[in-house]
Amino acid sequence: MADPEIKSYAPHHESQSAAVTESPTARAVLMIVAFAFLGVFLLLPLIIVFNEAFSKGIGAYAEALSNPDTRSAIRLTLLVAAISVPLNVVFGISAAWAIAKFEFKGKAFLTTLIDLPFSVSPVISGLVYVLLFGAQGLLGGWLKAHGIVILFAVPGIVLATIFVTFPFVARELIPLMQEQGNGDEEAALSLGANGWQTFWYVTLPNVKWGLLYGVLLCNARAMGEFGAVSVVSGHIRGLTNTMPLHVEILYNEYNAVGAFAVASLLAGLALVTLVLKTLLEMRYGAEIAATRGH
């Protein structure tokens, strides 16, 4: 009887049998293709970003980052991520729990709906908010009458970011939870644990690696989102410009150092995300392996 294998994001080493091993030439070709591709499309742009950012020396770089508008963009981006990521964690866990552990009407519909932000262009999701909350929009009049500003302000940016990033956590957790089933939760309940204890001691540890991965992806996207945010932000300098928007403005103003300095921060975020994930996997490798077996 095969025990259910739990997917993990740790690299999966398997011993290669001689029969499926390609000839040395074939292997070399495959590896060169893979590395060349990654080099041209991923590594090179990264190098160029940092190269441009530091093209006029470290002084110019520091100056570009200390610009008040740039600082404000960084602050706004952090704020947006700080609001939207935790909300999407809560949403992602709830949705994954509901979909993986219960049977209910409309389950397939909910599953499809979660994917919507992936299949819809971010610009369109931004436009939806304009139609909804804009001055001529569905709720525009009511909002205006009550003095609530959503569009071209921070709330609009947060909403658009949440919309764009909400599949990340849920998408990571649903297959994981479905695969694990209800057995562990039933066991915890039978041992006298209440719902909260079951969630905290059993469900959460079982999905923590998937959850962490989802959070990292969600955060990277929340900070990097351009399209949807661009539509609802209004591009008010120092007020509603997030980092990606600010990069574009600086670039359009031929301020290459400024644009690439901010871009280097976003690129740095991506690198930090990657390193963090790798470190965690190294540190907790044994535990991840334990989560996987059983």
Binding site: D3, P4, I6, D184, E186, A188, P205, N206, E287
Partner: peptide, 8 residues
Amino acid sequence: QHYALFRH
């Protein structure tokens, strides 16, 4: 049946 031991 499959023990449902807490793997972590």
